[in-house]
Design a protein around this nucleic acid. Structure first.
Length: 431
RNA sequence: GGAAGCGUGGCCGAGCGGUUGAAGGCACCGGUCUUGAAAACCGGCAACGAUGCGAGUCGUUCGUGAGUUCGAAUCUCACCGCUUCCGCCA
């Protein structure tokens, strides 16, 4: 959510910056809503003030035993208009809120302007791309060759875009998550968290998935109470949602900042609108695991912390010996809530390209404003936090990357050194 | 699933339908005292919103939503959450 004050004071400038990310702000509509809001709100408050003052007089007169019928008639006269306005005002405010809720964040000044992925800017490349003296296989062939990767059975159990791992492959999947968690908690100072995988609509709204992107989510309806009212749970599309919402409607003490949390959770995405993309393998699934880094920080520190968080995610790839590059997303390629985003892309030999494995973003106060997530500043006043998050990393895609980058001519896969302690000392996956 | 109780400011905790935005305490900020600190004492201290250049003024908010009333933290109803007891249970 953008700051409505900024829209009031600097509408044209905001519209221009939003245009760089491909969003047309309806400034006429805003001005219309704002004018209506102002008229109704000021008139309502005026009448309320009059009512309050008169009611106070009644109390005083009654205490003295005076006749109050004349004043009562006076208040009664306010009744109709006030009642009408008091019904109208929340509607107008809700209209404005609905208008604001679908406006994406304003890109930070340092974000390259562009319309698509093609305009993203490469920041660095790390690691040497492996050379193979044989024809490389993709992770599906490798996994099926080894045994333990079975899409047919997954499809039988659930449907398309699910996977089934068994044996050493399942173990390596777990090992990766464990290794990531241990690294972030022991070396990077994050607090491990276990969170709900089903969340309410307020939480989804807080981080920006709702109201605009409901079709990307798995919705779980449930009947609540005796009156049969239906409310929804939503399966989390990322741990960002439950973890960031920990501070919703909170005012945290200055000394508690920065707050750094890591959570390993499944993530559920409907992948509506991605029919036909990445249909083979584990790249794009309805359910996948991710180790997520989340920070709530002082607004002055958020860009510094973003670089740090990005480094934490990169550490995992370095430790695993996987080649990758860091890309700064352009205005047109960023997510709805982000002010700045770096993607980390890992090298996938079978695709002969880099593929996204992590996305690290600074949301500035965009999510905090929706969540009313605040801290008490040096002056003792509540102020909005900045929130950040990044994958550290997507576990399924990391498994894919390990299988492909560590494959051998005989179809076996060498286990990266850092994973061996988590694999009972095993050095190789083979048939 | 059954029974009872409870939801008040950053935290704890009072609160007759009418100067209650809300006693008191803690925390926090400023001051006096002190070589410094602590203690003690004095003072300040809710959030959000509207409006104004500004000091300010006004409105809303006591779990949420409806209702009664000229007026609701206080009365009524529904819902949500928490606690305790019984039953069931991974």
């Amino acid at each position: 959510m953008l700051d409505i004050q900024v829209l009031r004071n600097d509408l044209a400038a905001v519209a221009a910056r939003l245009k760089t990310r491909g969003f047309e702000l309806d400034t006429a509509q805003f001005e219309l809503l704002e004018a209506e809001r102002k008229t109704i709100q000021t008139r309502t408050q005026e009448l309320q003030a009059k009512r309050n003052a008169t009611s106070k007089l009644i109390g005083q007169a009654k205490a003295k035993g005076e006749d109050v019928s004349a004043i009562m008639a006076e208040v009664g006269a306010l009744g109709d208009e006030l009642k009408q306005l008091e019904t109208k005002l929340p509607q107008v405010l809700a209209d404005m809120d609905a208008f604001l809720a679908v406006i994406p964040n304003v890109p930070h000044a340092g974000v390259p302007v562009g319309m698509s992925e093609a305009d993203n800017v490469e920041v660095r490349r790390i690691g040497d791309i492996p050379k193979f003296a044989f024809e490389v296989q993709d992770h599906v062939s490798i996994g099926e060759g080894l045994g333990g990767l079975d899409f047919e059975t997954a499809t039988k159990i659930a449907g398309a875009r699910f996977s089934l791992l068994t044996g050493p492959l399942a173990r390596m999947h777990r090992a990766l998550a464990q290794f990531m968690l241990d690294t972030h908690t022991d070396k990077h100072g994050y607090t491990e968290t276990y969170v709900p995988y089903l969340v309410n609509a307020d939480s989804m709204r807080g981080t920006g998935q709702l109201p605009k992107f409901e079709e990307d989510l798995f919705r779980v309806p449930r009947v609540v109470g005796d009156d049969g009212v239906e409310k929804n749970f939503y399966l989390i599309p990322t741990a960002e949602v439950p973890v960031t919402n920990m501070v919703r409607d909170e005012i945290v003490a200055l000394e508690k900042l920065p707050m750094k949390f890591v959570a390993h959770t499944p993530c559920f995405r409907s992948e509506a609108g991605s029919y036909g993309r990445d249909t083979r393998g584990m790249i794009r699934q309805h359910q996948f695991e991710k180790v997520e880094l989340v920070q709530m920080v002082h607004p002055e520190k958020s860009y510094e912390m973003l670089e740090e968080l990005l480094g934490h995610a990169e550490t995992i790839l370095k430790q695993l010996g996987l080649p990758y590059r860091v890309v700064k997303l352009c205005t047109g390629d960023m997510g709805f809530s982000a002010a700045t985003t770096y993607d980390i892309e890992v090298w996938l030999p079978a695709q002969n390209t880099y593929r996204e494995i992590s996305s690290c973003s600074n949301f500035e106060a965009f999510q905090a404003r929706r969540m009313q997530a605040r801290f008490r500043n040096a002056a003792g006043k509540p102020a909005l936090l900045h929130t950040l998050n990044g994958s550290g990393l997507a576990v399924g895609r990391t498994l894919v990357a390990v299988l492909e980058n560590y494959q051998n001519a005989d179809g076996s896969v060498t286990i990266p050194d850092v994973l061996r302690p988590y694999m009972g000392g095993m050095e190789k996956l083979s048939k």
